[in-house]
Design a protein around this nucleic acid. Structure first.
Lengths: 338, 338
DNA sequence: CTGAAAGCGCTAACAG
DNA sequence: CTGTTAGCGCTTTCAG
């Protein structure tokens, strides 16, 4: 591999001159002729600057770190896709840590990515907010953007309009004629989980429907969580259980759906169900799930943009992607029986 | 952030001595007392060596590059998970390029990851083998492991036993009493696709069943591909179409299933279907898919191990993960009607 | 057992 | 307009 010195020698100039030209130094005053010689030499030698050497000098790595809980969660694919696309467009590399595969992931990230100087900034997606390490990193000045979370202490986050998406889902059910609408929420102390509950509440209130406590349950956003939440509502709702459910995560909706069928309830004839977040697979469940599709890929793109701003010194804001959620009506919702 | 000089100063030694101790230089002869002083100083200053400076000097980055086609393909989640786990265990970082999000991904990888010196080696998962750039990189001596592919020209690959998995799937169908078994294969010139076809062929021959050309179709391993392949067989198979299908990819199985249902065929009453590769979601299709589960996560782990060997100078082999595939019987297979 | 010195490949301030 | 110089933070001979 040719290095700068090789290029300079071949062009008959000093390495610093070659560097100026090849970096497109804005205050360069290089004669066009010299410039051409250097460019030619670089091309002929297939020169590419060594990233480590440059990074050591400039203190920038052009690399961002991405922390993601687990890749099998269907919801993350979209977000990571957006992140990858935006990063590539901005010519940044992405180092990924999948938390579920790495014991003590946040610790690892803060040592091997941040302290060792491998990244310019960090995108933390779907973190449980109580992770003190995240706050610590932010305090120490590491550029950092939270995705799908907000938390006091950390400035810089991107979320989608969870409340609006949830409202749309519930309004769809109410519009079909349902009055007893259950809510299977996410059992986590995150603003995201809260906003989804709020959306449900607002939609119900807006429709003039009083909510019964027995209609609500919370569980982790997993298939099993959804199953358990559904079981819990069915057990406590008494003689008049909900005729429809809004489930605040796609994975739990799948579990909830399975539980309904396992207990002999027909969807959508007996019970309707709509999930928060979409995925191609939702078209293939039994029955196909009605969902609200959130602009998750945009959320990922925006996170990169914000992070690069933060790296450049622009203070990070807390942003919400305003793109309208989209209701995807499939087969799991219908008017209530009777 | 403290650097080596700071540590050395605080311990009252030369940086080189501090380096020796902190790296655990095998031929160090440092007095235990000095050693302790250095270790203490490093601990107090929370010293971590700068990865760029070290890499510049040692020509090793402790980072591996991972090229993956797309994260929404359910099959990749497992493999990446295995890669992440093994990499973390070996204290290596992973730079990920999602090809579907990056225009001209291989070109990008070979410039920004390899030529710029950001990685010690490359794992290329599910690549279309005809990519000349991969072969070029291998020739230029970049340590490289192919996952789920073999190709002449590139040495170093990990695959699973596609043939055996396919045989198991088809034997399951034959065991249920099916004689007319169709094959929806992958339309790609890869050894992997070929081995799945071979497995089908062997199982049929082993059962003494002659194969009709009209039972076979190939398409890309996508939902739409599966749909089209199914349509093609249904169109060409005449009066006695297959009563069962082995579909060589999970995504196309989902499409094939959808197509069967769309054309009014009942699964498994009229037609059985079994897919190659499993995923939790397969339990929730309508009906739940019978699959063969391949040791994909192991494949990812092994790829990392092989790559690190290659980086260390051990010539890379072509390996097959011998762990037995597992038949996961769900609701999409049953004895033929009548 | 430890220190001095050189240099990985690059950039950036300063001179000229 | 271009070259000289001095590092970024680390490792690694070579001396002593």
């Amino acid at each position: 591999m040719a290095n700068l010195k090789d290029v300079a020698r071949r062009a008959g100039v000093d390495p610093s001159t070659a560097s100026r030209v090849l970096r497109n130094d804005p205050n360069q005053q290089v004669r066009p002729e010299t410039r051409e010689r250097i460019l030619d030499a670089a091309r002929e030698l297939r020169y590419r600057p060594n990233a480590l050497a440059r990074g050591l000098r400039t203190r920038r790595t052009d690399t961002i770190g991405l922390v993601i809980p687990s890749l099998d969660n269907l919801g993350f694919a979209d977000v990571t896709h957006g992140i990858q696309a935006a990063a590539a467009a901005a010519r940044r590399m992405v180092m990924v840590i999948e938390a579920s595969a790495v014991p003590d992931a946040m610790q690892d990230v803060s040592e091997r990515l941040v302290a060792d100087g491998r990244v310019d900034g960090l995108i933390v997606a779907f973190a449980s907010v109580d992770d003190g390490l995240v706050a610590q990193l932010a305090e120490r000045g590491m550029p950092l953007v939270l995705v799908n979370r907000r938390t006091s202490g950390v400035h810089g986050s991107v979320v989608v309009d969870d409340e609006r998406g949830s409202r749309m889902a519930v309004e769809h059910l109410v519009g079909l004629g349902h009055r007893r609408v259950g809510f299977l929420g996410i059992d986590a102390d995150t603003d995201t989980a809260r906003r989804r509950l709020t959306g449900y509440g607002r939609a119900m209130t807006g429709a003039g429907i009083p909510i019964e406590p027995g209609w609500l349950a919370a569980a982790p956003p997993t298939e099993d969580g959804g199953r358990r939440a559904m079981r819990s509502v069915l057990a406590s709702a008494g003689a008049h259980p909900p005729t429809a459910y809004f489930v605040a995560s796609l994975m739990s909706a799948i579990g909830a759906l399975a539980e309904l069928r396992a207990t002999g309830r027909r969807v959508p004839e007996d019970v309707s169900i709509v999930a928060f977040n979409d995925h191609p697979f939702a078209a293939h469940t039994a029955p196909a799930l009605t969902t609200v599709r959130m602009p998750n890929s945009r959320m990922g793109e925006e996170a990169v943009r914000m992070l690069l701003d933060a790296v450049a010194g622009v203070p990070a804001r807390d942003q919400m992607i305003e793109d309208a959620p989209e209701l995807v009506v499939r087969a799991s919702t219908a008017p209530p029986a009777g």
